[in-house]
Design a protein around this nucleic acid. Structure first.
Lengths: 199, 199
DNA sequence: GTCTATAATTAGATAGAC
DNA sequence: GTCTATCTAATTATAGAC
């Protein structure tokens, strides 16, 4: 239980202030436990970060994959639409994941290399293959599928990670389910403009 | 000169590790000056951050506005295309600006409130008004112009701030001018799909 | 597995000479 | 405007009792 409380607190803290900006004492305080327990359960700050990142990425990826596996057989465009709506929902319920990506990508580090190899690249390759099919069917716009993937990803996860700023500049509250649906609609309208091949 | 060296170092450091994750001693070291000079020139860490943010935002916004003011009279779609290419170019040459936005938006703070009120909201309002016109002309996709603005902004600036991660997952090097042009082309293709009204 | 106490380092900020 | 020296607080990590 202490481990879980520490991980929850660590995910929250690291997503807000990044690795260097977060103190392990602050994490222990958030979790309501004494700070030497971090050493006992996770050895040091670096391994605590890895355990926290592992947890949030596995949670995100598995809820994404689980939701997609439950989608009945439908045409490619409908399936892509469901994927985008699911991705937006997952990104909203676990905002820490994209925040951690954004925080760790600003300068080279072993943590970033590990993140890319362990969690980012597998999902990237999975989705890019699907995107290529959508492009061939004329559903997704032409051009580099890798760039397209990243544009979709930041339009969903990146935008949600910027929630506070967007609330401030535009008044739009992305915590509101209606705004969230509108975002997903917009992403679909923009990135999947083509009709499903009527064959 | 010391002030400028400190500001340059501060912009770099704060964009990489955020406010809490950056030490003023580290900034002084990067700038090659002794750390008490920060107190002398900027009073404290918070005011140094504000001065650094001010400088990077003013540089970005003024180079954007300057470039746009030099565009000859053209139709709305061509003008929007130039704007996007210019924005991508500015975001690439000053990656610190979007990194600072991303770093400060992850939790509420006085710094974020100040950033929104001072630098983010003015540009937002300027561009959203233009976007509405483009939507009425059928050039930009329908839907909330505020969401559309943010999707374009993160697809340009956000993606460039994620350069290291994208290099790692996909091999695409956004430092390469050709890739940068491809990104701008893609943003135009996706977000400005309509034809210019032939009148 | 959890506690108290503490070592070693680094942080932001200041004092006062030059 | 810049330097050396220093204060105070916070940080990561460990030692050892319970």
């Amino acid at each position: 239980m202490t481990q879980q409380k520490l991980l929850d607190a660590a995910i929250q803290a690291f997503s807000e202030n990044g690795f260097k900006g977060t103190s392990t004492r602050g994490i222990a305080e958030r979790a309501g436990v004494h700070h030497p327990l971090i050493t006992y359960h996770f050895k040091n700050k670096d391994l605590l970060w890895r355990a926290a990142a592992d947890r949030i990425f596995k949670e995100f990826n598995s809820s994404l994959i689980k939701a997609m596996s439950e989608v009945p057989e439908v045409d490619p465009k409908a399936r892509a639409e469901v994927f985008i709506r699911t991705y937006v929902r997952c990104a909203h319920s676990q905002p820490a994941m994209h925040k951690i990506i954004l925080r760790e990508s600003s300068y080279p580090s072993d943590r970033l290399d590990w993140l890319v190899a362990t969690h980012l690249k597998p999902l990237f390759e999975l989705v890019v293959d699907q995107l290529k099919v959508l492009q061939e069917l004329g559903i997704a716009p032409a051009g580099s599928p890798a760039l397209l993937y990243n544009m979709i990803r930041v339009s969903a996860g990146g935008l949600l990670a910027l929630g506070l700023e967007i609330k401030g500049t535009s008044g739009i509250d992305l915590e509101d389910q209606r705004e969230l649906d509108e975002l997903a609609d917009m992403i679909i309208r923009v990135f999947l403009p083509g009709d499903s091949a009527p064959s």
